[in-house]
Nucleic acid binder design. Sequence first.
DNA 1: CTGAAAGCGCTTACAG
DNA 2: CTGAAAGCGCTTACAG
Lengths: 351, 351
Amino acid sequence: MAPRRPTSRDVARLAGVSRTTVSLVLNNVPDVHISPETRQRVMDAARQLNYYPDVSARRLASGRTRTIALVWHRGPDQTYQDAFLPGVLQGITRAARHYGYYVLFRPIEPDEPNGSYVELARGRHTDGLILSGPRSDDPHLLHLHRDGFPLVLHGQLPGADIPSVDVDNVRGAMTAVEHLLALGHRRIGTITNASLAYTSSRQRLDGYRQALEQAGIPFDEDLVRYGNFDEGSGQAAMEMLLSLDRRPTAVFVASDMVAMGALRAIQDRGLRVPEDMAVVGFDDIPPSRFIAPALTTVHVPTFGLGWSAAELLIRIIEQDIPNEIHALLKTELMVRESCGRRTAVGRPGEQ
Amino acid sequence: MAPRRPTSRDVARLAGVSRTTVSLVLNNVPDVHISPETRQRVMDAARQLNYYPDVSARRLASGRTRTIALVWHRGPDQTYQDAFLPGVLQGITRAARHYGYYVLFRPIEPDEPNGSYVELARGRHTDGLILSGPRSDDPHLLHLHRDGFPLVLHGQLPGADIPSVDVDNVRGAMTAVEHLLALGHRRIGTITNASLAYTSSRQRLDGYRQALEQAGIPFDEDLVRYGNFDEGSGQAAMEMLLSLDRRPTAVFVASDMVAMGALRAIQDRGLRVPEDMAVVGFDDIPPSRFIAPALTTVHVPTFGLGWSAAELLIRIIEQDIPNEIHALLKTELMVRESCGRRTAVGRPGEQ
DNA sequence: CTGAAAGCGCTTACAG
DNA sequence: CTGAAAGCGCTTACAG
């Protein structure tokens, strides 16, 4: 940009006012009376000079960046995360824009040193952070929170009372299992999405257990197997369930990716879905709609998660802190083909 | 953050040096000799005070933001874009981090006023922009380029000589069609990914034509149908191809999303893939691996696109401009099930 | 090898 | 309703 950039001084000169007035007008500062004529003169001058305020100067003077960052910890569940990223990011950016904020995207690779995101806060890069996949043993997180830096977690961190946004995993799992029960299944297996060290795994398993309990079906440890994010783990887990003496007639797989493997295991045995084995998943990743049979699954509202997180964070930044700082979003059961239609006669339960 | 943030002055005082020295040490400015002892004293003081330089101040003083933005125009092909976003963004952020840059993500919704991204450049928000889905009638783009603002396009913009990164659509389409030819097909249809107003559509159709030409097969207008990003368009287009008196034995669908619809149309007719109709797609979106039969398709290197774009942009920003400012990335044919295996005896061509 | 000083371009009390 | 002035916290010639 060869020609010198115009500054607020140039605008002020052209409009015949002070730089103060230029700033007041351009930032639309409330409760300050400036005549409409003056306002117009300033606007016209700015337009004529093609003036854009220098954001770095503005930030330095105001102490606010109007930027938030999404800190996206990459873990062993990359494919899974990738399925969520577009929706979450769109939710965040839309909310951010609505409130006049910018969004910095900061993925953290597994090999980066712990807490390498703190400079985004300490260096006044951003006014607040949304963190996905936080680890409970992260001292930097706690320090930042203690120092009053605005933070919102995606997911939950037991213990610390940091604002958070998550999906209602327990209720989501319950609706999935209730769907199977309504179809007449009584012997229902489950495969977790990951190890129970993950909060979401524990919660989804809890939902499974609660749904059975409400239906008066005793919880049977034998019907629980453990997945680990990927297809391979689902395939292995399903094979174990299929090898049971009294195998289930239906299975709740707490992750669509894992369910892909489970479906393969079922089909490899020459069994049919849903006739021989009903399957319900969780997450509603894009492939689930396209496979045959299309997977009935629990939809996770990615856009809503992003929007809620950004909105909550911005309210905290702007000191308009809501009473409830933990949001739990509703899921929705997507009934497709892998359990048979609800209208169909339920499969006869065992015995 | 209640306690006053430490500034470079505090660090200087504690280390017993001037602020200049602090800046020189912390920024690792080359070609300036400072004794190792002094260096160490500064580092220690910074650590002890938990000092992080204020980036706004740094940017204002240096005139550089070390930030690039991805401007992501949302169009009619959202699902398609969502399949690409994670890879592209990861490529960009990894390259950015490698060179010490931050990444701002700025999606543009279809209803936003034209050129609403220019403030990112004019307001000195970023040092450069990567733009996806640029429209050739965008005057702001041309102005920015004329003013010397660093820009890299994702995709190509005929006419303007703006640096760009794209996938080699022509060669990609050729390998897809050559695969079908190698399997013995001679009557091969095609369905475009979108209207020919899109450069990628035109190029992929060109690849189809060239592959046929090289095999000595005359181009037949009847075998060309037009898709429009989504499944529905693929289904409709495929139905037309299936209604032909002499229908093709194979089809190259220039988009996996569109291919999903084409597959449905084939199966709705009770025909089998690949036995009755071989199908090869383009893009390699996640669902393509999971459907049955798994889709043979042309893989688009999303990570590479992102990395190349960011790297090219940063080189331009740092005045280290390469000779070739237009990158064309190689695709890779992913042979799966929808064309039959290469090892299988080729299907007999018509006649 | 190091320091005093100007300057980056805004915002914001404060005074009028 | 408007203006003069201080200040935000750095970097960077420049002088020594």
